[in-house]
């Protein structure tokens, strides 16, 4: 059956290595364009907030970092599920590739949050629901990373990290609803799919561009890292050796 064939293809690191290159270039170019446009728009053209003045421009980096750090974790949870149930090799590669960028992005969300909190709330750090659950997200990322470094057996390493990644996804709805469950300093979402935004378009449009830009950057970064992981794991195989002999293009990052 073709579905089964596709499934087997999807699980093959070699197949991913062969098809991923144009996607990585595409996401990279899109990220560069979107982030450049978004930063200039957000820093120079977006109107000042009548209460926060110019410090609200931090939103354009803080919100995308926080959003994408959660999405990357969710993606890792899905990969964990696939690895756990079907033992798909590529899912293990994906988990490994999500970790470094996820850690950096979550740390960035916490840092920019603190920097934004200082002029807005009068404190660098506040133990409110969303801040704490984001800190838990960072610890989950670091925990899985440490777990993978500690376990030498590849089979066990994959299954253990897949399990923690899956269980940890419980934290994602907690982050999302933390602003509704506990009364906190964090404001509830300004933009939702169902309601009208509480911000004017001149303010939320650059945010949308930045969010898309960071998503593209994440896709670029994670897929590139998956390729490095794949070559590491398969360096002894015939197809990698053949590739290294025939493929003498100048070294690129794709």
């Amino acid at each position: 059956m073709w579905i089964k064939e596709l499934w087997h293809k999807l699980g093959s690191p070699r197949w991913f290595y062969q098809i991923s290159s144009p996607w990585i270039i595409g996401f990279g170019v899109a990220a560069l364009v979107l982030l450049t446009v978004g930063v200039v728009w957000g820093l120079v053209y977006a109107p000042q907030d009548y209460q926060q003045g110019n410090s609200f421009r931090i939103m354009y980096v803080h919100v995308p970092a926080a959003m994408v750090s959660q999405s990357v974790y969710l993606g890792m949870g899905v990969a964990g599920f696939v690895l756990f149930v079907w033992r798909m090799k590529l899912a293990d590669v994906a988990i490994a590739a999500c970790l470094p960028f996820g850690i950096m992005l979550t740390a960035l969300a916490l840092f920019t949050g603190g920097v934004w909190g200082r002029p807005t709330w009068g404190t660098w750090w506040e133990w409110d629901g969303r801040t704490v659950s984001t800190l838990v997200l960072l610890f989950l990322y670091i925990g899985i990373y440490a777990l993978r470094e500690a376990i030498l057996d590849t089979e066990l390493r994959g299954r253990a990290s897949a399990l923690v990644a899956m269980v940890g996804t419980i934290n994602i709805p907690i982050i999302k609803y933390s602003v509704d469950w506990w009364s906190t300093l964090h404001q509830p979402a300004s933009i939702t799919l169902t309601d009208k935004p509480t911000m004017p378009p001149e303010m939320w449009m650059p945010l949308l561009v930045m969010v898309l830009g960071i998503y593209c950057f994440a896709a670029h970064n994670i897929m590139s890292r998956m390729r490095v992981e794949i070559l590491n794991r398969e360096s002894k195989t015939r197809w990698v050796r053949n590739l290294m002999v025939t493929d003498t293009k100048p070294i690129q990052n794709v």
């Binding site: 930063v39 110019n54 410090s55 421009r57 931090i58 980096v61 970092a65 920019t112 920097v115 934004w116």
Partner: peptide, 16 residues
């Protein structure tokens, strides 16, 4: 200067 918030804005964008 970012209306007096320069330090915070540039710290955020710089770290990003």
């Amino acid at each position: 200067a970012m209306g007096g918030h320069g330090l915070y804005v540039w710290l955020s964008y710089g770290s990003t």
